[in-house]
Simulated assay, not measured.
Amino acid sequence: MELENYFLFLSEDDIRIKGHRIGIDNVLFYFKEGYTPEEIRGLYPDLSLEKIYATITYYLQNQSEIDAYLLRINNWKETHYQEALKHPSPQREKMKQIKQQRKNALKV
């Protein structure tokens, strides 16, 4: 089986593991942090070791291309995080108020 058969290439910036909503970036984040495939499986018990190894092998065979992909994803996440800080959702504002009210109640 070709490695590409383990993945869904939804777009240039969205590669998922077939049968899951998990992106290869999730598995590769932990792999690059030094986690073993077995430890990654502990974090994602629905993923088979076969799929985890396929993801790692695909990365190692296409490292420069996948590193560029991971960089784009990290940049996208950071951009959206910064935007969320500038323009918090109504739910986030409500939670902030509740947190502040609880903090004030403890001071009394």
Results as ranks from 00 to 15, higher is better:
residue 1 M to H: 10
residue 2 E to F: 09
residue 3 L to N: 05
residue 3 L to T: 03
residue 5 N to T: 09
residue 5 N to C: 01
residue 8 L to T: 06
residue 9 F to N: 07
residue 11 S to Q: 10
residue 13 D to E: 15
residue 13 D to N: 15
residue 14 D to G: 00
residue 14 D to R: 14
residue 14 D to L: 13
residue 14 D to V: 02
residue 15 I to C: 04
residue 15 I to L: 08
residue 16 R to M: 03
residue 17 I to P: 02
residue 18 K to Q: 10
residue 18 K to D: 04
residue 19 G to K: 11
residue 19 G to Q: 12
residue 20 H to N: 06
residue 20 H to D: 04
residue 20 H to A: 03
residue 21 R to Q: 09
residue 22 I to N: 02
residue 22 I to W: 04
residue 22 I to S: 01
residue 23 G to M: 08
residue 24 I to T: 06
residue 26 N to W: 07
residue 26 N to E: 14
residue 27 V to H: 05
residue 27 V to G: 02
residue 28 L to K: 07
residue 28 L to A: 04
residue 29 F to N: 05
residue 29 F to S: 01
residue 30 Y to C: 01
residue 30 Y to G: 00
residue 32 K to F: 01
residue 32 K to H: 03
residue 33 E to P: 01
residue 34 G to H: 11
residue 34 G to P: 06
residue 35 Y to I: 00
residue 37 P to Q: 06
residue 39 E to L: 08
residue 40 I to A: 04
residue 41 R to I: 01
residue 42 G to Q: 15
residue 42 G to S: 14
residue 42 G to M: 13
residue 43 L to Y: 11
residue 43 L to G: 01
residue 43 L to F: 12
residue 44 Y to R: 05
residue 45 P to D: 07
residue 45 P to T: 04
residue 45 P to W: 11
residue 45 P to Y: 11
residue 47 L to P: 04
residue 47 L to N: 06
residue 50 E to T: 14
residue 51 K to M: 03
residue 52 I to F: 08
residue 53 Y to L: 11
residue 53 Y to H: 13
residue 53 Y to T: 00
residue 53 Y to D: 08
residue 53 Y to G: 00
residue 54 A to L: 06
residue 57 T to M: 12
residue 58 Y to V: 02
residue 58 Y to P: 02
residue 59 Y to N: 02
residue 60 L to E: 15
residue 61 Q to M: 11
residue 61 Q to S: 08
residue 62 N to S: 06
residue 62 N to Q: 10
residue 63 Q to H: 08
residue 64 S to F: 09
residue 68 A to N: 11
residue 68 A to P: 01
residue 69 Y to T: 02
residue 70 L to Y: 06
residue 71 L to R: 14
residue 72 R to N: 08
residue 72 R to S: 05
residue 73 I to Y: 07
residue 73 I to R: 10
residue 73 I to F: 05
residue 73 I to T: 03
residue 74 N to L: 11
residue 75 N to K: 13
residue 77 K to T: 00
residue 77 K to F: 09
residue 78 E to Q: 11
residue 78 E to I: 05
residue 78 E to L: 13
residue 78 E to K: 13
residue 79 T to H: 10
residue 79 T to F: 12
residue 79 T to Y: 14
residue 79 T to V: 04
residue 79 T to R: 14
residue 81 Y to F: 14
residue 84 A to H: 09
residue 86 K to W: 03
residue 87 H to T: 10
residue 88 P to N: 12
residue 88 P to L: 10
residue 88 P to W: 12
residue 89 S to I: 03
residue 92 R to P: 02
residue 92 R to G: 02
residue 92 R to L: 11
residue 94 K to T: 04
residue 94 K to W: 13
residue 94 K to F: 15
residue 94 K to S: 01
residue 95 M to N: 14
residue 95 M to E: 15
residue 96 K to A: 05
residue 96 K to R: 14
residue 96 K to C: 01
residue 98 I to C: 03
residue 98 I to D: 12
residue 100 Q to I: 07
residue 100 Q to F: 07
residue 100 Q to S: 04
residue 101 Q to L: 14
residue 101 Q to G: 00
residue 101 Q to H: 09
residue 102 R to I: 10
residue 102 R to L: 15
residue 102 R to V: 03
residue 102 R to D: 02
residue 104 N to I: 08
residue 105 A to D: 13
residue 106 L to H: 12
residue 108 V to W: 12
residue 108 V to P: 01
residue 108 V to G: 11
residue 108 V to K: 15
residue 108 V to N: 13
